[in-house]
Write a protein that binds this DNA or RNA. Structure first.
Lengths: 226, 226
DNA sequence: CGACAGACGATTGTCGACAGTCGCTCGTAT
DNA sequence: ATACGAGCGACTGTCGACAATCGTCTGTCG
């Protein structure tokens, strides 16, 4: 548990912070599958007591990033390629198709503005080669739309799927998609959203998520539904 | 919070029991959407301290049965018909298709035996009109197969999907499927599993889950309309 | 009569201490 | 040597107390 770069947090919602920090550590690869997570150590490292740590671990357990065995502790959990490709990604598509459809009617002009900002941010980070920040913007983009769909279960499930997918690609399938392409994809998605054409949006969403699985489809110069 | 039928538990894994009891109370409808869940009250009712209750609430929150707002408590969450039909059920199909496929090669003869026992149990409870027990057997059937698939994420996600679906049908869409038909469906599914024909199994799984949504489709004349 | 700051009550969030459980080590008998 | 079981650490599980926060009630002032 040494040197994870975890830092103490001031007085504020502890549990959330602990969960966030651990999630970061896992999805970024600082914590690898099989690593044990000792409550006392984590608590000490984060400058809190075990209570918030325990709750964070429970949460991560439900997010599938951690497994815990009664009286025997928790450890970081990995994902198999099969599960990602045949379960997590298809589920993510189901979720996002539904959420984007619902969100179409509730997205405000200001939301669209925010989304555009995120896309711009993506382009910038893509140019700068900041993969981590790109992924963050990517997540915020999707999370905003799903939040606006006002489907609580969708959002809740998305939050448990997305970290696993991210952790998987980060660890086991190093970035194969061209950052600039990801940015363009989002721009396209946003453009389609602006048209309000439901069928087109659903198509774009599905393709957009699929690109993670088929890296070869359009590295540069491809003509796929863009 | 009065009279939920909650009972004190002896010394054993508390958190799990609390979660189980609350989940039962919610899926069975004793707790309705919007009901507030006060940690202190629940703890008192269950004869434990707040710690296990809190963890159980976190777990139920991740299972989508409960929402909680910081410093303002938790309440039971409902599901919309849209979400069940367009999100939860499709996801369940994705999960189970994958899990059943994986499980085909790992199911032992003894597992098949157990499954047969469960199907027999279903027939019995169907005759007795014990809807609750029927649903329990149903769940155990699926859970066993998914467990044998040895896909942890599948099992974990299934456990978070299934209670919501159950709660929904219990509360908002009273049993429209003929109990005897459910039992026969499982018998059929089990028979197909025994043949080991992967494609056939996947078909059977998908149809089997779909029946919840389309009550009207019954192959041969069982018109015991609930 | 209505807006607003402060106090209050109800509940959640956090903490430190203690109890329970698991795996392993080490001595002992066979 | 091997098998067995008591003892020991290292943790997790649970508890009761205390701190922080939110919504509301209330009294005051404009």
């Amino acid at each position: 548990m040494a040197g994870l770069g975890l830092r103490r947090v001031p007085t504020q919602s502890r549990r959330e912070h602990v969960a966030e920090i651990l999630r970061d550590a896992i999805t970024s690869g600082r914590l690898a599958p099989g690593d044990r997570l000792i409550e006392l150590d984590l608590a000490a490292e984060l400058g809190t007591s075990r209570a918030p740590v325990r709750e964070a671990l429970r949460q991560l357990e439900q997010e599938g990033l951690v497994v815990s065995y009664p009286y025997r502790g928790s450890e970081v959990l990995g994902v198999s390629q099969d599960e990602v490709e045949q379960v997590l990604v298809p589920i993510r598509i189901t979720l996002e198709r539904f959420a984007f459809k619902k969100a179409l009617s509730t997205l405000t002009p200001q939301d669209l503005e925010t989304l555009q900002t995120l896309v711009d941010e993506m382009e910038e980070t893509a140019r700068a080669g900041a993969a981590e920040e790109l992924a963050d913007a990517d997540i915020r983009f999707h999370e905003l739309v799903i939040t606006r769909s006002e489907q609580r279960h969708c959002l809740q499930m998305w939050k448990t799927i997305q970290p696993r997918v991210r952790a998987y690609f980060r660890r086991d399938a190093p970035a194969h998609s061209d950052p600039a392409y990801v940015a363009r994809q989002h721009q396209h998605l946003l453009d389609v959203i602006r048209t309000g054409d439901e069928a087109a949006v659903l198509d774009a969403v599905e393709q957009h998520i699929h690109i993670h699985l088929e890296p070869a489809t359009e590295p540069e110069g491809g003509e796929h539904g863009e």
